[in-house]
Design a protein around this nucleic acid. Sequence first.
DNA 1: CCCGATACTGGATATAATTCCACTGCTGAA
DNA 2: TTCAGCAGTGGAATTATATCCAGTATCGGG
Lengths: 215, 215
Amino acid sequence: MEASAPMDPLTERQSEILRLIRDLTEVSGFPPTRAEIARSMGFRSVNAAEQHLRALEKKGVLEILAGASRGLRVREPRPAGRLGRLMELPVIGRVAAGSPILAEAHVQARYQLDPNLFTPRADYLLRVRGMSMRDAGILDGDLLAVHRSHEARSGQVVVARLADEVTVKRFRRRGYAVQLLPENPDFEPIELDLRQDSLAIEGIGVGVIRSGKGL
Amino acid sequence: MEASAPMDPLTERQSEILRLIRDLTEVSGFPPTRAEIARSMGFRSVNAAEQHLRALEKKGVLEILAGASRGLRVREPRPAGRLGRLMELPVIGRVAAGSPILAEAHVQARYQLDPNLFTPRADYLLRVRGMSMRDAGILDGDLLAVHRSHEARSGQVVVARLADEVTVKRFRRRGYAVQLLPENPDFEPIELDLRQDSLAIEGIGVGVIRSGKGL
DNA sequence: CCCGATACTGGATATAATTCCACTGCTGAA
DNA sequence: TTCAGCAGTGGAATTATATCCAGTATCGGG
């Protein structure tokens, strides 16, 4: 059995609720709370709203984010747009220790970019923290366009994970000896021996985007 | 003094926050909480976010609905016309003496970019030549996203035209005295007196894109 | 020198909001 | 008849969130 799309029919009341959510979101800029839904619909119990939301979620037309206030998202059948060739890249912010880089929780935004802009193809944008790559023209707050890859060649800028920390450095390797080099004399190179240290390459840098007034 | 509309300039941090609110709203479907803003920005105190929100409200670019969770509304200046989907930006290469920057002959390529990427809106991409802005993280071959404007404020990176030459420098002005400052000690500042020297501002830098190779 | 603006940390508190539980009543299908 | 889905009431526990208060530090102007 599949839980999914083909749109079980909504009851009269349910589509009324769905429409209400859309309308309230439109006018206020954010989705309503259960209490607000109940008030608008004339319910005397917030739980009436809650039950409707559950039903809408089960029918796949609504997303409920557990624990988040106003955590409702109406599943739109894709709002037109969607010009064919563009890629939509997630912007990854602070990466929590131990969690995969591309976890939804790290996504700060999504930008559409022209695929021809970077080669090889960029898979995501990582917001760089700190000045350790300053002399490579990668500054604090910049977005590093990253191509996912578990291998790197000497001289490439890599996104590496060391003991649960994600870092951007220039990669250099000779046999088992790996160096992760900052491009800023104020920082120390990281020296690793692959026979004893664990190193995971998450991707290689293929571009930089700096937006805004940091300029 | 009145607090009102005409848009006091936002500080760098403030516009960063504003952009974050816009982006997170776009991604999740509802505005962030103070705690979420703090987390994304790296604050350890939710109050840091709160203070920024107050500042943004006072400057008239944000609405805060008291008591409502996620009660944030970014006041869109509704960019005349439609900020609709993608923009296609021309990449401008070497600019021939005496001809307008946007002349067709200078266009090397066109890239589609997400309008949300830069604020204010980028009008074209200029390929930077030379290392005179190295310490600002703008390297030879980088694309500078430029917002067309004939005025600039001190501290901004500008595209200026001096005696038929187009150059990228940091702008500083005190009365009639204008300095065009390189960000590289190997280059000399350019000092101008507006009473005798001609200076045309072609635009202000709002972003940088570096693709591939140098990395 | 003190002041206001900016940019934060850290802690406390009241309230906004989610979420669970126990019930009532209806309807249509097995 | 019994059961599942639908549509609600009412109350309460627990988080999530907004919001206040008291600090620290830096910066530029009067």
